[in-house]
Simulated assay, not measured.
Amino acid sequence: MNDDPMIDQLVDAALPHVAFDGWSQTAFDAAVRDSDLDPVQARTLCPRGAVDLAIAFHKRGDAAMVAALGQADLSDMRFRDKVAHAIRLRIRAVDDKEAVRRGSALFALPHMAPEGAKLIWGTADAIWNALGDTLHDVNWYTKRLTLAGVYSSVVLYWLGDDSVDMQATDAFIDRRIDNVMQFEKFKAQAKDNPFVKPFAGVLGRMASAVKPPKDVADMDLPGTWRGPN
């Protein structure tokens, strides 16, 4: 859920219109009308109108995924299976596939692409945090970047999946996680390569110098929008 329940109210009111009008001004105006909110108050809550509602819809899915992970028994799972399970929970947190499709179209627009990238990064960050990631080196970034790529490809595949109980998407998730694990295995083997070893010390010192931000909310990420001064 979002910090302000009125934003969730607007999102819920917008969803029936998004299927026809996308995350547009038309859908936003209809949501304001259907929710009986004062238009000025609605615009204060969502200065960018439907764009802010699309973002709120995405973040609501992230919050539902984190809540579901918190209730799941992951004790007998390998870590790779925990990540796959988190991705599945995130997909299943979506209660309106068409809204995601329309959101994908919105955030594919050139001027909205940075905002879309930030949302995908946020999902990857939420998954790693929920799984207890405690690394404080360059891996903080690389793990989230890798997972962001996996998740975005899963979403695109899922949007076209009409299999029973999402079976095709489940298999796709497993394949993508396998790809990542193969890459990680390759990196581990490369460290023992005699041609790589001379550079290991330098790369290690460079990696140790990279630290994750103390406050992700204050990161100057692409798509960051802090509102009017």
Rank of each mutant, 00 (worst) to 15 (best):
T44V: 14
G61F: 01
Q71C: 11
H58Q: 08
L45A: 05
L45W: 07
P47G: 08
D52F: 11
A54W: 00
D73K: 02
A64S: 11
A56P: 11
H58A: 13
C46I: 05
R43P: 00
G61W: 02
L53G: 05
A42Q: 09
T44C: 09
D73H: 01
F57Q: 10
R43E: 10
G70E: 05
A68H: 00
D52W: 15
Q71H: 09
A67Q: 08
A67H: 11
A50I: 11
A54M: 12
A63Y: 07
Q71M: 10
M65W: 04
P47A: 01
A63V: 06
D52G: 13
A50E: 00
F57H: 15
K59S: 10
F57N: 12
R43W: 00
G49A: 06
L69Q: 06
A67F: 01
A54Y: 02
G70A: 07
M65T: 08
A42D: 05
R60K: 13
A68T: 09
D52M: 13
T44M: 09
M65R: 02
H58W: 15
L53M: 10
M65V: 04
L45C: 14
L74A: 12
D52V: 11
I55E: 02
A64E: 04
D62Y: 03
F57W: 12
M65F: 07
G70M: 02
A50M: 06
G70K: 12
A50N: 07
R48M: 07
A68L: 04
V51A: 12
F57R: 12
G61L: 03
F57K: 12
D62V: 03
D73M: 00
D73S: 02
A63G: 02
M65C: 12
L69A: 11
G61N: 14
R43M: 03
L69R: 04
R60I: 03
A68D: 00
Q71F: 01
M65K: 06
V66N: 05
R60A: 15
A68F: 03
I55S: 01
G61S: 13
I55L: 07
L69D: 07
P47W: 08
A63C: 02
P47Q: 07
G61Y: 00
D62F: 05
A67C: 03
A72D: 12
A54K: 01
V66P: 13
A50T: 02
I55F: 01
P47E: 10
G49H: 01
V51M: 09
L69E: 12
C46K: 07
R43K: 15
A54C: 14
K59T: 04
M65G: 06
A64G: 04
R48Q: 10
G70Y: 08
G61I: 06
A64H: 00
P47L: 06
V51P: 01
H58N: 10
Q71D: 15
Q71T: 14
R43F: 00
A42I: 00
L74K: 05
M65L: 06
C46M: 14
R60F: 02
A50L: 07
R60G: 15
A63F: 02
C46A: 11
L74F: 10
G49Q: 10
R60S: 15
A67N: 10
A72K: 02
F57L: 13
G70Q: 04
A72R: 05
L45M: 09
R60Y: 08
